[in-house]
Design a protein around this nucleic acid. Sequence first.
DNA 1: GGCAGCAATTTGAACGATCAAACTCTGCGT
DNA 2: ACGCAGAGTTTGATCGTTCAAATTGCTGCC
Lengths: 334, 334
Amino acid sequence: MAKAPTVEDVAAHAGVSRQTVSNVLNTPDIVRPATKQRVLEAIDALGYRRHAAARRLRLRRSSTIGIRLDPYVGGISGVVLDRFVHAITEHASERGMRMLVYAARSTEEELARLSELWEGSEIDAAIITGTFRDDPRVGHLDAEGLPFISFGRPWGDDDIADPLHLWVDVDGASGTRAATAHALGFGGHVSFFGWPPGSGTGDDRERGWREAVSAAGARGGRVIAEDSVPQARASMAAALDDGLVTDALVCASDSLAVGALLALGDARLDLPVIGFDNTPTAEALGFSSVEQRPEDVATAVLELLMGPTGDVVAPRRLESGSAHALITPELIVR
Amino acid sequence: MAKAPTVEDVAAHAGVSRQTVSNVLNTPDIVRPATKQRVLEAIDALGYRRHAAARRLRLRRSSTIGIRLDPYVGGISGVVLDRFVHAITEHASERGMRMLVYAARSTEEELARLSELWEGSEIDAAIITGTFRDDPRVGHLDAEGLPFISFGRPWGDDDIADPLHLWVDVDGASGTRAATAHALGFGGHVSFFGWPPGSGTGDDRERGWREAVSAAGARGGRVIAEDSVPQARASMAAALDDGLVTDALVCASDSLAVGALLALGDARLDLPVIGFDNTPTAEALGFSSVEQRPEDVATAVLELLMGPTGDVVAPRRLESGSAHALITPELIVR
DNA sequence: GGCAGCAATTTGAACGATCAAACTCTGCGT
DNA sequence: ACGCAGAGTTTGATCGTTCAAATTGCTGCC
């Protein structure tokens, strides 16, 4: 292809100067309409497009956001993140932003990559996911001065009133509450199938079930397993052997739900099982599941990071109550 | 944070000139060891990092590759692509390349986005996926002069001897051949569950089964369904009603396999089912499946696009037989 | 007529890196 | 003593854009 045209070429073609072309693109209001018209025609005629690198150099901003692609670990649940990444890419593009992805196998590697990208001015901000209590990434990124936001709350003592950083999360308790309310339509004994206690996310989801059950004056048991189908199947099989009788089952994840369904099948039992994450597997096997709404998460993330309509990174201030967004998930009934 | 140091700052700190610092970074061999040492120490002391935008502007190359994030359409199979994207991100980073993702809802939108990125010098090359016969993207990208490679073959009359563009694909026939060979261990009647004819990928996978069955002097039927679990379940139920008797089943996808398993369960039948793509669902439900090896695909893609070890985009020439790579998939037995 | 005031446009400089050409220094042969 | 080769290093120019300051052209007013 021929050399790409520059502002100078456009200027010559339109019979104006460099800066006027720049003004047409950046501050069109200060250019006389007739001139603007001529410049726009020249841009069109030459097929001019701003050179991204030159612009970035001059503006000292890359208009790019970094996000990690998590390693594939097998299992069912990468999908929520993948959908989130897709949604954020779409919305970022609408605001003139680009998404740069990086791969990392560990938190240390992730921080190394992020420092590299930030110090090399390749990104203006980062989105981190799967935050946990006392997450080392928070301190590190704060120290580097890299603006960031997390999908996942800090899980501090009071993450809402005393925000340590910007975050967006899904209200897990609300999801299991809705699931439990729906499940109670099948009978008064609704059990919960969750993860070992200690994970913020898991405890939150269990709380929703507990609240809904007690609010309805109903009852239910609680079964625990690690988040893998075989382990879930085994745990649930044991629980059934031990005489767990229940009218419906609310699960902390679709993996647990699949394991439960398999165990129920083995025991020739059939009862409603509700999963969490609404993965393709839930859709394929046809069980109900709580949908995290990654689209809404993506919108909220950009709003906190760039303001309601801006096209530059301008993180919301860390003030009590306004530094986060809590998305209400939706129960998909099947 | 303080202003990031530049080459000039490093130079001053080390008592040398701009260019010497640049030489230490780019052509270390021509710098005297003692000088190099001093410069490296200065770089370390100041925490210097090259400014990506400045470098890109001067070098007229972005060291960035664009790849589309496919919209989430539901169903089971986005996973292969996600794993591929992850793998390519990892390997690209090892070669000093970055991956920029973009979202598009249609082929037209994809081309618009790619033109934008290419004309704005944001990317040096693109990777497209899911190519089909007479894919409009090929002509368009060729016309624009954007170097690209596809994951998925062109499906032309002779895509190997007369390459239209660079491509890497998985040898589907080889996968189903292996699956069928394994299935024949369960009896001499192995059937194939595939998609309606006409899709290159589907026909290719069917061919592998056909070849393996006839090579073994065995027999088998052929059932067809669209790639969705409910449709697969219905088609397979009908086939079973019609008296399809078989010792094992080889499927064109994990979606079909899940549908088949559900139909078999309904009919109280139990026979080995082998899927394709080795999705998390196959792992979760515990059926065998053909693994596409996205890692190998990623390596091959970069090799064709950048040469065996280069760190610049330098597409392989379009010569018969050397413009593609065909990856042999692996049967995962469960 | 002359000039203030303003809008529209132009010119010079800068962003931070690398290439190409110019320069310095040492060692060696004559 | 002089010139030359070559390694090592420095200086000037450039990539394409935007900011800041300077310039031009016009209107209205005294």
